[in-house]
């Protein structure tokens, strides 16, 4: 079960990624009934870190990469998260950092109690350096405001 879900995760991820940048997949990886070269986890992490670390990255591209990460069956590595936060700093978009941290926390799913503290511990130096608050520090771990239901407005 575990291995099949892992295969599924890898398949999903690679299917999503291959369309984006096939030239990055160089080294031979694990094969799962496929003639295509699979990207290893380390290569994946390095690719996204490098993407966020680009000097000329703009808000559109940051959101695109964050959205792609949000669609994949994974929680991004702390190094990727830190690089993404630095990218937000370069384009001066503070709100994006909060939203991205929320997404990462949401991506932890049922393992939130295990992964999220680890994530915070790993990215804490970056948070402190850039002066970024976690969603908890802003009180966004619990609902703060409520929107009226549009179907109840007459």
């Amino acid at each position: 079960m575990a291995s099949s879900s892992m295969k599924m995760a890898l398949w999903t991820r690679n299917a999503l990624i291959r369309g984006v940048r096939p030239q990055m997949q160089t080294a031979a990886g694990i094969r799962f009934m496929s003639s295509k070269v699979q990207e290893t986890d380390a290569e994946f992490d390095a690719r996204y870190e490098a993407f966020f670390n680009r000097k000329d990255i703009d808000g559109w591209e940051i959101r695109k990469a964050m959205q792609d990460l949000a669609r994949m069956d994974l929680v991004p590595e702390p190094t990727i998260v830190a690089a993404a936060l630095r990218a937000c700093r370069r384009v001066n978009d503070y709100s994006l950092t909060t939203r991205f941290l929320e997404v990462v926390k949401f991506k932890c799913g049922s393992k939130q109690d295990e992964i999220w503290p680890y994530m915070l511990q790993e990215i804490r130096p970056t948070l402190d350096e850039l002066g970024i608050s976690t969603p908890e520090e802003l009180g966004y771990d619990k609902p703060e405001l409520a929107l009226p239901n549009p179907y109840e407005i007459h």
Binding site: R89, N92, D93, Y94, L96, R99, G131, L138, Y140, K142
Partner: peptide, 28 residues
């Protein structure tokens, strides 16, 4: 102000910036 040091942003300002970009938080 956001273009400067983010450490100088107060919590209400941070929230104001967030709500300017997003209507609801994910938990909401």
């Amino acid at each position: 102000k956001e273009k400067g040091d983010w450490k100088k942003l107060t919590v209400p300002e941070r929230k104001e910036l967030y709500r300017a970009s997003f209507a609801q938080t994910l938990t909401e």
